[in-house]
Protein backbone atom coordinates (compact mmCIF):
# COMPACT_ATOMS: atom_id res chain seq x y z
CA UNK A 1 0.00 0.00 0.00
CA UNK A 2 1.48 3.36 -0.95
CA UNK A 3 2.26 5.70 1.88
CA UNK A 4 -0.31 8.46 2.20
CA UNK A 5 0.80 11.50 4.15
CA UNK A 6 -1.30 12.56 7.08
CA UNK A 7 -1.92 15.93 5.43
CA UNK A 8 -3.60 14.24 2.46
CA UNK A 9 -5.59 11.98 4.78
CA UNK A 10 -6.80 14.93 6.81
CA UNK A 11 -7.71 16.90 3.70
CA UNK A 12 -9.53 13.88 2.27
CA UNK A 13 -11.58 13.38 5.41
CA UNK A 14 -12.39 17.08 5.52
CA UNK A 15 -13.48 17.16 1.88
CA UNK A 16 -15.65 14.07 2.26
CA UNK A 17 -17.40 15.69 5.22
CA UNK A 18 -17.80 18.98 3.33
CA UNK A 19 -19.18 17.37 0.17
CA UNK A 20 -21.51 15.16 2.17
CA UNK A 21 -22.89 18.28 3.87
CA UNK A 22 -23.24 19.96 0.47
CA UNK A 23 -25.06 16.95 -0.95
CA UNK A 24 -27.39 16.87 2.02
CA UNK A 25 -28.21 20.54 1.62
CA UNK A 26 -28.80 20.28 -2.12
CA UNK A 27 -30.49 16.90 -2.42
CA UNK A 28 -31.98 16.39 1.04
CA UNK A 29 -30.87 14.28 3.98
CA UNK A 30 -33.41 11.49 3.38
CA UNK A 31 -31.86 8.00 3.55
CA UNK A 32 -32.86 7.32 -0.06
CA UNK A 33 -30.79 10.19 -1.43
CA UNK A 34 -27.54 8.59 -0.24
CA UNK A 35 -27.71 5.69 -2.72
CA UNK A 36 -26.54 8.21 -5.29
CA UNK A 37 -25.09 10.64 -2.81
CA UNK A 38 -22.47 8.46 -1.13
CA UNK A 39 -20.72 7.38 -4.36
CA UNK A 40 -20.95 10.92 -5.72
CA UNK A 41 -19.40 12.38 -2.58
CA UNK A 42 -16.55 9.85 -2.57
CA UNK A 43 -15.87 10.35 -6.27
CA UNK A 44 -15.89 14.13 -5.88
CA UNK A 45 -13.51 13.98 -2.92
CA UNK A 46 -11.13 11.69 -4.80
CA UNK A 47 -11.24 13.87 -7.92
CA UNK A 48 -10.70 17.06 -5.95
CA UNK A 49 -7.60 15.54 -4.33
CA UNK A 50 -6.29 14.68 -7.80
CA UNK A 51 -6.94 18.17 -9.10
CA UNK A 52 -5.93 20.30 -6.12
CA UNK A 53 -3.37 19.40 -3.50
CA UNK A 54 -4.43 19.97 0.11
CA UNK A 55 -4.11 23.55 1.32
CA UNK A 56 -3.76 23.88 5.09
CA UNK A 57 -5.92 26.60 6.61
CA UNK A 58 -6.94 27.80 10.05
CA UNK A 59 -10.65 27.47 10.80
CA UNK A 60 -11.08 30.48 13.11
CA UNK A 61 -9.62 33.11 10.75
CA UNK A 62 -11.86 31.67 8.02
CA UNK A 63 -14.94 32.71 10.00
CA UNK A 64 -13.40 36.12 10.71
CA UNK A 65 -12.66 36.52 7.02
CA UNK A 66 -16.20 35.50 5.95
CA UNK A 67 -17.75 38.06 8.32
CA UNK A 68 -15.31 40.75 7.14
CA UNK A 69 -15.96 39.82 3.51
CA UNK A 70 -19.76 40.04 3.80
CA UNK A 71 -19.50 43.44 5.48
CA UNK A 72 -17.11 44.73 2.81
CA UNK A 73 -19.20 43.49 -0.08
CA UNK A 74 -22.32 45.19 1.31
CA UNK A 75 -20.45 48.46 1.57
CA UNK A 76 -19.11 47.84 -1.94
CA UNK A 77 -22.67 47.52 -3.22
CA UNK A 78 -23.73 50.68 -1.37
CA UNK A 79 -20.79 52.52 -2.91
CA UNK A 80 -21.67 51.38 -6.43
CA UNK A 81 -25.36 52.16 -5.89
CA UNK A 82 -24.49 55.70 -4.73
CA UNK A 83 -22.34 56.29 -7.79
CA UNK A 84 -24.89 54.80 -10.19
CA UNK A 85 -27.89 56.68 -8.83
CA UNK A 86 -26.18 60.05 -8.32
CA UNK A 87 -27.53 62.69 -10.71
CA UNK A 88 -24.03 63.34 -12.04
CA UNK A 89 -21.65 60.43 -12.46
CA UNK A 90 -18.64 60.88 -10.24
CA UNK A 91 -16.16 58.39 -11.55
CA UNK A 92 -12.43 58.74 -11.88
CA UNK A 93 -11.44 55.23 -12.96
CA UNK A 94 -7.81 54.18 -13.13
CA UNK A 95 -5.65 51.09 -13.23
CA UNK A 96 -3.63 50.42 -10.08
CA UNK A 97 -0.77 47.94 -9.85
CA UNK A 98 -0.34 45.85 -6.71
CA UNK A 99 2.35 43.35 -5.77
CA UNK A 100 0.97 40.34 -3.93
CA UNK A 101 2.93 37.98 -1.73
CA UNK A 102 0.20 35.34 -1.41
CA UNK A 103 1.14 31.88 -2.70
CA UNK A 104 -0.30 30.78 -6.04
CA UNK A 105 -3.37 28.58 -5.99
CA UNK A 106 -6.38 28.88 -3.72
CA UNK A 107 -5.16 31.85 -1.62
CA UNK A 108 -4.48 33.92 -4.73
CA UNK A 109 -7.76 32.96 -6.40
CA UNK A 110 -9.63 33.98 -3.27
CA UNK A 111 -7.69 37.24 -3.19
CA UNK A 112 -8.55 38.12 -6.80
CA UNK A 113 -12.20 37.24 -6.31
CA UNK A 114 -12.52 39.21 -3.08
CA UNK A 115 -10.91 42.25 -4.72
CA UNK A 116 -13.76 42.29 -7.22
CA UNK A 117 -16.37 42.26 -4.47
CA UNK A 118 -14.91 44.92 -2.18
CA UNK A 119 -15.67 48.64 -2.60
CA UNK A 120 -14.34 50.38 -5.66
CA UNK A 121 -11.88 47.71 -6.82
CA UNK A 122 -11.98 45.07 -9.57
CA UNK A 123 -9.18 42.63 -10.30
CA UNK A 124 -8.44 43.02 -14.00
CA UNK A 125 -5.29 41.03 -14.73
CA UNK A 126 -2.48 39.09 -13.08
CA UNK A 127 1.02 38.26 -14.29
CA UNK A 128 3.31 36.48 -11.84
CA UNK A 129 3.04 38.50 -8.62
CA UNK A 130 1.65 41.64 -10.16
CA UNK A 131 -2.09 42.30 -9.97
CA UNK A 132 -3.75 44.98 -12.08
CA UNK A 133 -6.70 46.44 -10.23
CA UNK A 134 -9.30 48.65 -11.88
CA UNK A 135 -10.56 51.26 -9.39
CA UNK A 136 -13.64 53.46 -9.70
CA UNK A 137 -12.05 56.40 -7.93
CA UNK A 138 -8.34 56.97 -8.21
CA UNK A 139 -8.32 59.23 -5.15
CA UNK A 140 -8.98 56.46 -2.62
CA UNK A 141 -6.29 54.72 -0.56
CA UNK A 142 -6.39 51.45 -2.46
CA UNK A 143 -2.93 50.30 -1.45
CA UNK A 144 -4.03 50.15 2.17
CA UNK A 145 -7.37 48.47 1.42
CA UNK A 146 -5.69 45.81 -0.71
CA UNK A 147 -2.96 45.05 1.78
CA UNK A 148 -5.59 44.83 4.55
CA UNK A 149 -7.49 42.26 2.50
CA UNK A 150 -4.28 40.39 1.73
CA UNK A 151 -3.28 40.35 5.39
CA UNK A 152 -6.57 38.78 6.42
CA UNK A 153 -6.16 36.07 3.78
CA UNK A 154 -2.57 35.47 4.84
CA UNK A 155 -3.83 34.76 8.37
CA UNK A 156 -6.23 32.13 6.98
CA UNK A 157 -3.44 30.30 5.14
CA UNK A 158 -0.35 29.88 7.30
CA UNK A 159 2.84 29.77 5.27
Amino acid sequence: MPAVSSAVLRAGAFRIALYALLWGILAGFEPGSWFLGAPAVLLAAWLSLQLASPVPFRPWPVLVFVAFFIGRSVSGAVDVARRALAPRLRLAPALVVYQTSLPAGLPRVLFLNSISLTPGTLSADIRDDTVWVHVLDENGDHEQALSGLEGRLARVFPQ
Binding site: S73, A77, V80, A84, P93, S116, L117
Partner: peptide
Protein backbone atom coordinates in the same frame (compact mmCIF):
# COMPACT_ATOMS: atom_id res chain seq x y z
CA UNK B 1 -14.61 47.90 -16.60
CA UNK B 2 -16.80 50.24 -14.60
CA UNK B 3 -19.92 48.38 -15.73
CA UNK B 4 -18.38 45.21 -14.32
CA UNK B 5 -18.08 46.99 -10.97
CA UNK B 6 -21.80 47.74 -11.00
CA UNK B 7 -22.85 44.23 -11.95
CA UNK B 8 -20.61 42.17 -9.71
CA UNK B 9 -21.09 44.22 -6.57
CA UNK B 10 -24.65 45.51 -6.68
CA UNK B 11 -26.34 42.44 -8.17
CA UNK B 12 -24.59 39.94 -5.95
CA UNK B 13 -25.40 41.81 -2.77
Amino acid sequence: HSRLHALTKADNV
